[in-house]
Design a protein around this nucleic acid. Structure first.
Length: 818
RNA sequence: GCCGAAGUGGCGGAACCGGUAGACGCAGUGGACUCAAAAUCCACCGGCCGCAAGACCAUGGGGGUUCGAGUCCCCCCUUCGGCACCA
């Protein structure tokens, strides 16, 4: 009978399910292994990117389980989020119905691929049993002051009168009505992630099993920067403007002070004569779409009419507002030093402000500059600091500022507090009410969850559907018992994904977000796989949550992930596979053609897990061919190999036997550590080739039976993590009854794997002139003697002086001649 | 602009510590089987010169270190990814 993947796959998927092979419990003693893939957004159908991500995880989970480790390998759904709501707006389907249908489809697709998930632990973030704990965490953070309300700019579509998420803004226009988007300040809830900025940064040093590029991205994202805060008094007023600078040493070169257009003091420093112009400028910036504002590099500003006094030199410099100064960073105000900062230089050129060199790094003249000079140098034009090295001057100036109470050294971060408010329906309601008498009041814990109502209508216009839902809106103030209005914003879905890995440990827990002992047993995650697109957001938020939960006394660890792998993108015809590009490849058709095992094998074999992968269907056929070959070989041999065999005595090691043990060594090493899965598969193919090459001489002698049986059984067992259905079917053909995932991983004998003879290249002046076959323990002298005897080598050496002879054991001989 | 990763046959890739470049697979070519085809099996498969033995050139380009460089160092080019007025 030929290899029939469909019959095999449906049969074994049923067997596995009946036997509950994926079920996992905490067991005392022995090693645990938490193998996790980023859970899935239920967008509709799975594509090759999912297949790749989850197949890698499945290989590792199955391998670990075969090795006897207690493996937790769950899957769930990141089920809240905007696409469900967009679908509702467009298509008259409820987000819940849309989500449930997609989950059903995608779960079926995952099951067809044979992934070893413990589905009893499945988590869906849109269920109240889950999201109530988002609310609970929110309240806990609120109690601790880690959660606050503030105004922040959002994308606003005036035409639809609604807030837009960044991804709903398409080159500055609304995704629905294509009218320009503006920014608007709205009250929002924030989590104080900046309190953890330093710990998040310091922790990166210990994440040695994370891809270094992810660590770098996080480091840049957090963006620690050491500088100084300096107060500039406003001439003729009592007020001071506080600026942030990393180049305090250049302060004598400041020829202007620049505030962000939204700076709270902007109005106060605007003189009556300048009011009209300043207001026009601010209005213009305000009306600018987020897109335009971030794309334009032109430096535009306006003079406020006021002057600030340089606290070091006493010099009066004009105060401007300008578009290139950001309110979100530092203090929203800078001192402008055109000679030493490129942006300031451009601004000075545009507004004809003086340019004054204060750090001399050569023989530069202020009037000759064509760009700013950031280099170190010797101070000039800087009063008492002239002649000092600029770095020394910076320290001395900081000291002076501190003494005179006009500034201090400080650290700022690019990382901002995490705004979690979303003016959306399909998310976790924020458990807060507003009471006219008491203000903003948290919903008591006992009243959780604040349920998301199901009976809502979607228009895509105006406020979130929650704001129009009377039943949801009206609440009783927990403080005074009076009438109150419920918060209608919902939470960012990154909140959901910040702790789902903890929920998997005890998914049915009703009294707490998780069972502490179960969480302690399984965590931290030993191996986490997902796309690099989550390098900053999700992977910073979940680290932050873990730290907060630790500080709340709920966890006893602060870093959630031990080893991280980011699988490479799946590319099709040179472009990223994505829904928007319409080049998605779904696995179903290919599973139909070749079976899930071939699809799995193909996607693993095509390139190393972390490299980009160019999807080519032809490879699936190659994988299918390979499985067919193994199947035919095993079928042919099964009868003859049935029954016991005896290990041959004597020192002679058969070549096939050596190959078997070498392959075992290679595959074991790859799967337990390096995870270059593509080469592990290549070595399985080599073993298959060796086995087939051996068969013509196979006569069924006891020694041969042993060697062949060992090779065949090792091959089948090693195949199991990659192609679990086919491997189990083959194992059955070989007369075994158990599932391979429940059997042990085969051991190898390094003595048998060792080569007794090696081929060494013989070089003359670095060029290969021949080869020698010598015992692997041969001495250098012996190797040289044999090497010299090669005719071609001899010819190259003749008449020349050998000045050096190098022997690299088992690899190379090199004669250096003159 | 800044930061990071990568560039190897027709293609995907291999070469883990600097040691025979091209494992394994795909595609292709020739052959066997077949009435024929598919499937399968066998052989070949970087370029160039040569009847051959053999020589030479080849890991994006250019320099360097080394007995020896795909691998290390410097400069440049290209592609991809991240950040993007961060003061």
């Amino acid at each position: 009978m030929a290899y029939d993947p469909h019959a095999i796959e449906t049969r074994f998927q049923k067997h596995w399910q009946e036997a509950g092979v994926a079920r996992m419990e905490e067991k005392g003693g022995g090693g645990k292994f938490y193998c996790l893939e980023m859970f899935m957004y239920p967008s509709g159908k799975i594509h090759m990117g999912h297949v790749r991500n989850y197949t890698i995880g499945d290989v590792v989970a199955r391998f670990r389980k075969m090795r006897g480790e207690n493996v937790l390998h769950p899957m769930g759904f990141d089920a809240f989020g905007m696409p469900a709501e967009n679908a509702a707006i467009k298509g008259h389907t409820h987000p819940k119905a849309w989500t449930d249908a997609n989950i059903a489809t995608m779960k079926g697709q995952l099951q067809r691929l044979g992934f070893l998930y413990d589905w009893e632990r499945e988590v869906r973030t849109c269920e109240p049993e889950y999201y109530r704990w988002n609310q609970w965490f929110f309240l806990k953070m609120f109690e601790r002051g880690l959660c606050y309300k503030a105004k922040r700019a959002v994308n606003w579509c005036p035409d639809c009168a609604t807030v837009l998420a960044n991804e709903q803004v398409e080159s500055g226009a609304c995704w629905r009505c294509h009218n320009p988007v503006v920014t608007r300040e709205m009250d929002q809830w924030f989590l104080r992630i900046t309190d953890y900025a330093q710990e998040l940064l310091d922790g990166l040093d210990h994440l040695t099993d994370w891809p270094p590029e992810v660590v770098t991205m996080q480091r840049n994202w957090i963006g620690r920067s050491e500088g100084a805060l300096v107060d500039f008094p406003v001439a003729g007023q009592e007020r001071k403007i506080r600026i942030f600078t990393t180049r305090l040493d250049t302060i004598y070169g400041a020829t202007c002070l620049v505030l962000a257009p939204e700076h709270p003091e902007a109005e106060a420093v605007t003189t009556r004569e300048r009011r009209t112009e300043v207001e026009a400028f601010r209005a213009q910036v305000r009306s600018q779409s987020t897109h335009d504002r971030t794309t334009s590099r032109d430096k535009v500003g306006v003079f406020t009419g006021s002057y600030a006094l340089n606290p070091f030199s006493g010099e009066a410099v004009p105060i401007y507002l300008a578009n290139f100064v950001l309110m979100e960073y530092g203090t929203g105000a800078i001192m402008s030093v055109p000679a030493h900062d490129q942006r300031d230089f451009e601004f000075a050129k545009a507004y004809d402000l003086p340019i004054r060199i204060v750090v001399q790094s050569g023989s530069l003249k202020s009037e000759d500059l064509t760009e700013a000079v950031a280099a170190d140098g010797i101070m000039e034009n800087s009063g008492p600091y002239d002649g000092m090295a600029n770095r020394e001057a910076l320290k001395a100036m900081a000291e002076e500022a501190r003494k005179r109470g006009m500034g201090e050294l400080t650290v700022t971060y690019r990382l901002k507090d995490w705004g979690i408010s979303r003016q959306r329906y399909w998310g976790t309601p924020i458990p807060m009410v507003t009471c006219d008498a008491c203000g903003t009041v948290p919903v008591p814990e006992s009243e959780l969850p604040v349920l998301l109502p199901m009976d809502v209508t979607f228009t895509g216009k105006g406020e979130s559907p929650l704001a129009g839902h009377g039943g949801f809106l009206s609440a009783v103030c927990p403080k005074c018992g009076g009438r109150a209005r419920r918060e209608t914003d919902t939470m960012d879905t990154f909140v959901d994904s910040s702790w789902y890995f903890l929920r998997y440990c005890s998914p049915k827990e009703t009294e707490a977000p998780f069972d502490r002992s179960a969480v302690r047993y399984w965590n931290p995650i030993d191996f986490y796989i997902g796309g690099i697109e989550h390098a900053t957001m999700h992977l910073i938020y979940c680290r932050f949550f873990t730290m907060v939960l630790r500080d709340l006394g709920l966890l006893d660890f602060g870093e959630p992930v031990k080893r991280l792998m980011c699988q490479g993108m799946v590319i099709k015809d040179g472009a990223k596979m994505s829904k928007s590009l319409g080049n998605l490849v779904e696995p179903d058709e290919m599973i139909g053609k070749y079976g899930a095992d071939s699809v799995r094998l193909n996607i693993l074999f095509l390139s190393p897990p972390w490299d980009r992968l160019d999807w080519k269907e032809a490879g699936a056929e190659g994988a299918y061919r390979f499985l067919n070959r193994i199947y035919a070989t095993v079928e042919e041999l099964a009868g003859d190999l049935a029954g016991p065999v005896e290990e041959p005595a004597g020192p002679e090691v058969d070549a096939l036997r050596r190959k078997t043990h070498q392959t075992l060594a290679k595959v074991t090493a790859e799967l337990s550590d390096r995870l270059k899965i593509n080469t592990a598969i290549a070595s399985l193919m080599e073993l298959t080739n060796a086995l087939q090459g051996y068969l013509p001489a196979y006569r069924g002698t006891p020694a041969q039976r042993f060697v062949v049986k060992e090779a065949v059984e090792s091959l089948v067992r090693m195949l199991s993590p990659f192609c679990p259905h086919a491997a189990d079917a083959l194992w059955e053909l070989l007369g075994h009854r158990e599932f391979l995932v429940d059997t042990g991983w085969p051991c190898f004998d390094p003595v048998i794997a060792r080569e007794e003879e090696v081929t060494m290249a013989v070089q003359v002046n670095g060029k290969v002139r021949g080869q020698v076959r010598v015992p692997s323990e041969a001495s250098d002298e012996e190797v040289l003697r044999v090497a010299r005897a090669i005719e071609k080598v001899f010819a190259q050496l003749e008449g020349k002086t050998v000045i050096k002879e190098l022997v690299v054991p088992k690899r190379i001989v090199n004669f250096v001649v003159r």
